[in-house]
């Protein structure tokens, strides 16, 4: 039983990483209708930039990082990555909006290659993994044999806060209403005077910023960062978004946690099985619910 709870905690922790990353996939899909295959790389950018920011802060203060410094670092990393997301959209995706979806998908593959290989080629970054700094104090709590670390608590807490904020923005603010309008019907949104470009840029900003936070959280558990880490985490989170029902924010969160938890449990049996389980769960869910758990198909008007 303790093993079960211990695994569940690991599952929740991994699930929160997937959920945060899946949100970006689902938002971009919901609003622009494209699969942004470069989305996972925003996670890497978030983690990598945190490494360098922490180095810079450590140089100045030389001691361990203070809470204020950690918060500053996280915010800078999130905002910076968000802006990179906006830039990527403006340069590479915007011109493709009216083209076949595959064109945008392939472009995204190219963008992803660029985002991975550009830092890799830079002499001060390079291909080698580097250690991730400790951002959160290390305290271990023992609850009847189940260990919970402060990092896990902080991470889970922060990701839940971020998701609640996002949910609030999308569902309760005028901005969110505009986002929902664009995702339902672009032409109608345009007629209502909504600036679609701004909404799309904002979507990319939020998605990339959330990806950045998930990168920081992920690296806090597995403290190693390299330029390729975003690609397979991205694939997993994309799966999470689809199995939850792509385009639906609650679906992305749900999918993220389902994937994280099932992966941890399967890995405890066999690591290859752990890798496979997400894909198997996905196929099974799609066979019975072709639009994902919370997704809905409408009958196409003919």
């Amino acid at each position: 039983m303790t093993t079960f709870f211990q695994l569940l905690i690991y599952g929740l922790q991994l699930g929160s990483v997937y959920a945060l990353l899946a949100l970006g996939y689902t938002m971009v899909y919901g609003i622009v209708g494209m699969i942004n295959f470069a989305h996972g790389d925003f996670l890497m950018i978030g983690a990598l930039s945190t490494v360098f920011l922490a180095m810079a802060f450590m140089n100045t203060s030389s001691a361990a990082l203070s809470a204020i410094q950690v918060i500053t670092i996280i915010l800078i990393a999130m905002i910076g990555t968000g802006l990179i997301g906006v830039l990527v959209e403006a340069i590479a995706y915007k011109p493709l909006r009216d083209r076949p979806r595959m064109t945008a998908l392939i472009t995204a593959v190219g963008v992803s290659m660029f985002l991975q290989n550009f830092p890799r080629a830079l002499p001060f970054i390079g291909p080698n993994p580097r250690p991730f700094p400790r951002l959160f104090p290390l305290v271990q709590l023992n609850l009847g044999g189940v260990t919970i670390t402060s990092t896990q608590l902080i991470m889970l807490g922060l990701s839940i806060i971020l998701m609640v904020i996002l949910y609030f923005i999308v569902n309760k603010t005028p901005l969110g209403a505009q986002m929902r309008a664009v995702s339902m019907d672009k032409d109608a949104a345009l007629l209502m005077g909504i600036n679609i470009n701004v909404i799309i840029s904002l979507t990319f900003f939020i998605g990339a910023a959330l990806a950045s936070s998930s990168g920081i959280f992920y690296a806090s558990i597995y403290p190693q960062v390299d330029v390729y880490m975003g690609s397979w985490l991205g694939t997993k989170s994309f799966i999470a978004a689809v199995l939850g029902g792509i385009g639906d924010i609650r679906g992305a969160m749900l999918g993220g946690f389902i994937l994280g938890i099932s992966e941890i449990f399967a890995t405890s049996i066999n690591s290859n099985l752990g890798y496979m389980i997400g894909f198997i769960v996905l196929i099974l869910i799609l066979l019975f619910k072709p639009a994902g758990l919370l997704g809905k198909f409408s009958i196409e008007k003919v």
Binding site: R101, V242, Y275, G278, F279, L282, L286, A291
Partner: peptide, 15 residues
């Protein structure tokens, strides 16, 4: 449909 098939083929390849 479309993207859902895409993701299933991706899953297939990885499985």
């Amino acid at each position: 449909k479309g993207d859902y098939l895409a993701i299933v083929t991706l899953a297939f390849g990885e499985i």
